[in-house]
Design a protein around this nucleic acid. Structure first.
Lengths: 195, 195
DNA sequence: GTCTATACAGCGATAGAC
DNA sequence: GTCTATCGCTGTATAGAC
């Protein structure tokens, strides 16, 4: 029997920990983030946090896997809802813009900068995020190429890498300006060559 | 009378501090970097470091200003040596590739990720780096447009922002793969649309 | 599952001798 | 200009009571 009644949003402590940690890490980075930050926000002690995530690297790993699976769900939603390849790409850019509008980096973009300081487990999970995105972008590009709506020279894989790199970089630089507009302009220039 | 004899390379302690700190920050980030790291490498104590740079934020600021002025010197060298706009752009990409080949991020790209944790003085200096680069890139693009070697739609400023964002992002993601090849492929795709 | 208490290491920074 | 010594704080992590 679950401890939450019907109608409850069922946010257990582990979820609340991940929510707070995710936001802090996306804004300030994994190395500038501490158990203390989360503890204060949740009104519990750091000892309680360690009960759920004994080591910081394990918390970090959980952060990435949840982020990646949520991201995958949004990409699937784009597949289901959007007809054209262009609409899917626009939706993809929109996901990034939403994150930036909250003053945050992409979690895995942030972690890529700190890559050399991460545990092996976190490093692997970060790479998997990028690879998953590249595969999805590749499929969208193939679709656009097949139906004639997109034109590009070079391998689909390389264009996919360019798009994700370009968007991550646009987020990165835009962090220094707190400007979603800047991000949107760069994204538009980036994708303009595909028309 | 200088304390260094003729023929000495004249690397004082402040320079050696900046050299070590710069490399560590570019590889691991400002928040994962400590006075202790530099002290061990230079064989002096952290107290000696504080004599030269009393506060970490001041060391950070010095790091950025030196990096930016060195970068400016390299851009000027490209202006002096390269005739075509395309050659200048290739040289620009080459600078980034050289850094990445040493397992490092662009200093200011790294600091952009940590932006919200930096002192105001460092934040300002980071933005100045990007603005300086955008101006230079804008001039190159104008040159390419004027002599007919480059074609693009949209504002020159936006294309310049796209190029620096794209290259920074390519470095960022490539950090997770330790792959200069990946970076070069993305850079090529990024600039292909200008031909 | 959360608490108090604590261990222990590392950090930035300072005082004062040399 | 560099040292020894030290301070105060923060960080991750653990033990054991409740």
């Amino acid at each position: 029997m679950p401890t939450t009644a019907q109608g409850d949003t069922d946010v257990g402590t582990p979820t609340r920990i991940l929510d707070a940690a995710e936001r802090i890490v996306q804004a300030r980075g994994f190395n500038a983030f501490s158990y203390g930050d989360v503890a204060v926000e949740l009104g519990i002690t750091t000892a309680a946090l360690h009960y759920h995530y004994p080591r910081k690297a394990e918390l970090g790993r959980a952060l990435i896997t949840r982020y990646t699976s949520r991201f995958a769900a949004r990409l699937k939603a784009l597949d289901d809802a959007s007809g054209s390849a262009q609409a899917k790409l626009d939706g993809y850019v929109g996901i990034y813009a939403q994150v930036l509008a909250q003053g945050k980096m992409c979690l895995c973009g942030m972690l890529a900068a700190e890559y050399l300081t991460l545990s092996e487990s976190m490093q692997t999970a970060v790479r998997e995020f990028f690879e998953h995105n590249e595969i999805w972008l590749g499929q969208v590009l193939e679709q656009g190429k097949a139906d004639g709506s997109m034109r590009f020279t070079g391998e689909v894989e390389d264009i996919a890498k360019m798009i994700i790199s370009g968007l991550e970089g646009a987020m990165l630089v835009s962090m220094a300006y707190g400007s979603v507009e800047r991000f949107m302009k760069v994204a538009a220039s980036l994708l303009a060559s595909l028309h």
